[in-house]
């Protein structure tokens, strides 16, 4: 019985739903941070034995990083870029909800098919896969560069939870490697967004496509 862990997992799924539908950029950043914190707490709740000092310290680092450092970086990037405060989705609310539900159905089905060790915590694999899918949704259907960074973070949360499902006791090996990547990615993107916005006054990726060699018909007219 992992009532608390299961509750946290359901909260993570609800945060996926919230991320898929929210219209405000700052809410999006807060939701990603909350999800990160919840994911960071999971190893403390899902373990079968007592909590070791290493696990606790590791969880503390994750929570600090995802709950404080990343949001701070992202809010700074958002403020400096002077972007508008909404996420500008390419798809409507009902479509986002449908995608989210569909992704969860697909994730449950996949989760029941994957040969994974028994974790004792229900829904952990579906939740992780659904989180990855939600990150994917954020990356593909939002126009702003900053929401793409958020999407990567959500995907990372999902992969982290998936790692947790594989190694309930020792998620660190997986996590450390990914975290490093993502940290670098967020850093680079934060700087990149900042600079792009100074050059172009906006951070809409749709407009960035104009930088390519391909020219739209009647461009400039």
């Amino acid at each position: 019985m992992h009532i608390l862990a299961e509750l946290v997992i359901v909260l993570i799924i609800l945060l996926d739903l919230g991320l898929a539908v929210t219209g405000s950029l700052s809410a999006c950043i807060r939701l990603v941070a909350a999800q990160g914190v919840l994911a960071g707490l999971l190893p403390l709740l899902a373990g079968t034995e007592g909590i070791s000092a290493g696990t606790a310290a590791f969880a503390a680092v994750i929570v600090l990083l995802k709950g404080a450092v990343f949001p701070w970086l992202l809010i700074r990037a958002r403020d400096r870029s002077g972007a508008r405060q909404d996420v500008e989705p390419l798809v409507s609310y009902p479509v986002s909800v449908a995608f989210c539900l569909g992704s969860f159905v697909a994730a449950s089905w996949l989760g029941s098919r994957l040969p994974l060790p028994e974790t004792g915590v229900a829904w952990i694999v579906p939740a992780s896969l659904a989180t990855v899918f939600t990150g994917f949704l954020l990356i593909t259907t939002r126009t702003k560069a900053i929401t793409q960074v958020l999407g990567y973070l959500v995907m990372e949360n999902g992969i982290y939870i998936f790692g947790l499902a594989l190694f309930v006791q020792q998620p660190m090996m997986v996590e450390l490697a990914i975290l490093l990547d993502v940290f670098v990615a967020v850093f680079v993107m934060g700087i990149a967004i900042f600079h792009i916005s100074r050059e172009f006054d906006h951070i809409d990726t749709a407009e960035l496509s104009e930088l390519s060699d391909w020219r739209r018909e009647g461009y400039g007219s």
Partner: peptide, 11 residues
Amino acid sequence: SALALILQLAR
């Protein structure tokens, strides 16, 4: 509602 049903079925 849908999420509740899926969760119930996926456990």
